[in-house]
Simulated scan of single mutants.
Amino acid sequence: MTVSDSHSHIIILGAGKGGTALLESFLNLPGVRVLGIADKNPAAPGLKLAQLHHIPTSQHPVDLIQKKDIHLIVNVTGDPTLPALLQPYTNPGTEVLGGSASKVLWELIQHQIHVQSQLFQAEKLAGFGTFASGIAHDINNPLYVILAMAEAIQEETDITEIRQQAASIYEAAKRIQTISQDITQYARASRSQEFVQVHIDKQLDEALKIARFATKFQDITIDKHCQDGLVIYAKPEEILQVFVNLLTNAIQAMEGKGTLTLSTEKQDGYVHVAITDTGCGIPSENLQKIFDPFFTTKAVGKGTGLGLYNVRTIVRKYQGDLTIESAVGKGTTIVLVFPCFPSN
Rank of each mutant, 00 (worst) to 15 (best):
Q121H: 15
Q121P: 00
A122C: 05
E123H: 10
L125S: 05
L125H: 06
L125E: 15
A126G: 06
G129P: 03
T130M: 06
T130I: 15
A132K: 12
S133G: 00
S133E: 13
G134F: 11
G134T: 09
I135R: 05
I135G: 06
A136F: 10
H137N: 09
D138N: 14
I139H: 03
N140T: 11
N140R: 12
N141K: 15
L143K: 04
Y144K: 14
Y144T: 12
Y144G: 01
V145T: 14
I146D: 03
L147R: 13
A148S: 14
A148P: 00
A148D: 13
M149P: 02
I153D: 02
Q154R: 08
E156M: 13
T157W: 03
I159V: 15
I159S: 12
T160V: 10
I162M: 14
I162A: 06
R163F: 12
Q164T: 12
A167F: 07
S168I: 02
S168T: 05
I169S: 03
Y170D: 12
A172E: 07
K174W: 02
R175Q: 13
I176P: 02
I176T: 11
Q177F: 09
Q177C: 05
T178M: 07
I179V: 14
I179N: 07
S180R: 10
Q181G: 03
D182F: 04
D182M: 02
I183Q: 08
Q185R: 14
A189Y: 10
S190Y: 05
R191T: 13
Q193R: 08
F195I: 03
F195D: 00
V196Q: 09
Q197R: 10
V198Q: 03
V198L: 08
V198T: 10
V198I: 11
I200E: 04
I200A: 01
Q203D: 09
Q203A: 06
Q203E: 15
L204I: 13
D205Y: 06
D205S: 13
D205M: 10
A207L: 01
A207T: 08
L208R: 06
K209R: 09
K209Y: 01
R212M: 07
R212D: 08
A214E: 09
A214Y: 10
K216A: 11
Q218T: 15
Q218D: 15
Q218N: 14
D219N: 15
D219R: 14
I220F: 10
I220H: 07
T221M: 06
T221C: 04
I222A: 08
D223S: 12
D223C: 04
D223I: 04
K224R: 15
K224C: 13
C226I: 13
Q227D: 11
G229S: 04
G229K: 04
G229L: 04
I232Q: 00
K235E: 08
P236D: 12
P236K: 09
P236Q: 09
E237I: 00
E237S: 15
E237H: 11
I239M: 07
L240K: 11
L240I: 04
Q241T: 05
Q241K: 03
V242M: 03
F243D: 05
V244K: 02
V244L: 02
N245M: 03
N245H: 02
N245L: 08
L246S: 07
T248W: 06
N249H: 11
I251Q: 08
Q252A: 02
Q252I: 08
Q252F: 00
A253K: 14
A253C: 10
M254Y: 08
M254V: 06
M254L: 09
M254Q: 13
